Simulated scan of single mutants.
Amino acid sequence: MPHHSRLSTFVLDCEVDDLTPHVEFWSRALGKAVKAADEDGDGRYAVLDTADDEPILLLQKVDHASRIHLDIEADDIDAEADRLEALGARRIGFVKRWWVMEAPSGHRFCVVRPQRETFGPHTNHWD
């Protein structure tokens, strides 16, 4: 099925009790202002301010070891997950509104719904 996708987000998974000091660290380390210190009001997500043509920088409080993963946004997440499976990835599970995937290399990543209004010039078109 034809669909579109692109690199969306670098997610800094943080195994911590309080995300706040880590948001401050990454903000200062990357020279990016804090756009949302508590995006969903539950203390689990924070967003740093990036330009429209840059990937989103999201900090996420998690229960597993700290790491960085990426998100791929797609206008059809099931079609994108199918495409990636055909390349050798595997589906780990569906969480809320996205697929958690694993690359053949063992890296985890997510396929998410569009995170920005338009896909823009860096969009991949898949048939």
Rank of each mutant, 00 (worst) to 15 (best):
G31K: 12
V112Q: 01
P21L: 11
R90D: 06
K96D: 15
D63A: 12
D40T: 11
W126P: 04
G93R: 13
L59W: 05
Q115P: 06
F94C: 12
P21C: 10
T20R: 12
V11N: 02
G106V: 13
D13S: 15
V100S: 11
T20Y: 04
H122D: 14
T50K: 03
H122L: 07
A33R: 09
A103S: 14
D71H: 01
W99T: 01
K96R: 15
M101G: 00
R108Y: 07
I77D: 00
R67I: 07
V23H: 04
D75S: 06
L84R: 02
W26L: 02
A89D: 02
E15T: 07
P2Y: 05
I56P: 01
D38Y: 08
M1K: 07
P55Y: 02
P55I: 02
W98R: 09
E54W: 06
E117D: 09
D82A: 11
R113A: 14
H122S: 11
G88S: 11
E54Y: 06
R28Y: 07
I56C: 13
D82C: 11
A37G: 14
T20S: 15
R97T: 12
R113E: 15
H125S: 09
A89M: 04
G120K: 04
I56S: 12
F109N: 00
E15H: 13
G41Q: 10
K32S: 14
T118K: 07
F119N: 01
A89T: 03
K35P: 01
V11S: 05
F25R: 15
E80A: 10
V47Y: 11
D76T: 06
R67D: 11
V112K: 00
D38M: 07
